[in-house]
Simulated assay, not measured.
Amino acid sequence: MNMENTFNQTSQPDAEPAAVHNTIFSPTAAEPDMSYIIRKIDQIMADSQYIRDALAQLEHAEGAAAMAIGNIVENRENTNQRMIELLQKLLDNLKPQQLDTDVAKLDRIQQILAAVDMDEDYKFDILNQVIQRLF
């Protein structure tokens, strides 16, 4: 098998599973949801057919052809890693952002103290004690 045939067989869209080709977001979708992103990560992680195909081709390849197949697999893995990183960032952005519980408690105490009619120095002392206990 010559190098051109090896490259063509490895890089043909028909030779790769649809899961990898479908990792691009639809231009009509406003924003992917969590389940879509998780499915895509799972598909990328489960797709190993191209590695099996490359190993089968390596049995018959020598020299430059073998190096080319190895480079293709390596580049494909790098692409998959970057895609997973991107999808992970998108997933992190979709997760609800929660305030730190201590900060939320402090905000609530400040609201209560602001609404209560009492001496400002006393409010300050209460707030200081709360801050010392929380942090």
Rank of each mutant, 00 (worst) to 15 (best):
Q43H: 11
G63A: 05
L55G: 11
E62R: 09
N71M: 15
D53E: 08
Q49S: 14
A66G: 09
I69Y: 00
E62Q: 15
A61W: 01
A65C: 07
M67D: 11
E74G: 06
G70H: 00
A61K: 06
G63Y: 09
I44L: 10
A46P: 04
A64P: 01
D53T: 06
V73H: 04
A61G: 07
A46Y: 08
S48D: 14
D53Y: 05
A64I: 08
L55Y: 04
Q49I: 04
I69L: 12
A64E: 15
H60M: 13
Q57R: 11
E62I: 07
G70P: 00
R52K: 13
E62P: 01
A46Q: 12
G63D: 11
D42W: 03
E62Y: 09
A64T: 08
D42G: 13
D47V: 02
V73K: 04
M67I: 10
I72Q: 13
E59W: 01
Q43M: 04
D53L: 15
G63T: 02
D42K: 13
G63V: 02
A46K: 09
G63C: 07
E62C: 05
N71P: 02
I44Y: 01
R52D: 12
Q43K: 05
N71F: 04
E62V: 11
L58V: 00
M67T: 11
A68L: 15
G70Q: 05
A68S: 12
M67S: 08
S48R: 13
I44T: 00
S48A: 13
I44D: 03
N71R: 14
R52C: 05
M45L: 15
A64R: 06
S48K: 11
I44E: 02
A66M: 04
M45R: 15
A61I: 02
I44N: 02
G70T: 06
A66T: 05
L58W: 00
Q57V: 00
Q57N: 12
Q49V: 07
A68T: 13
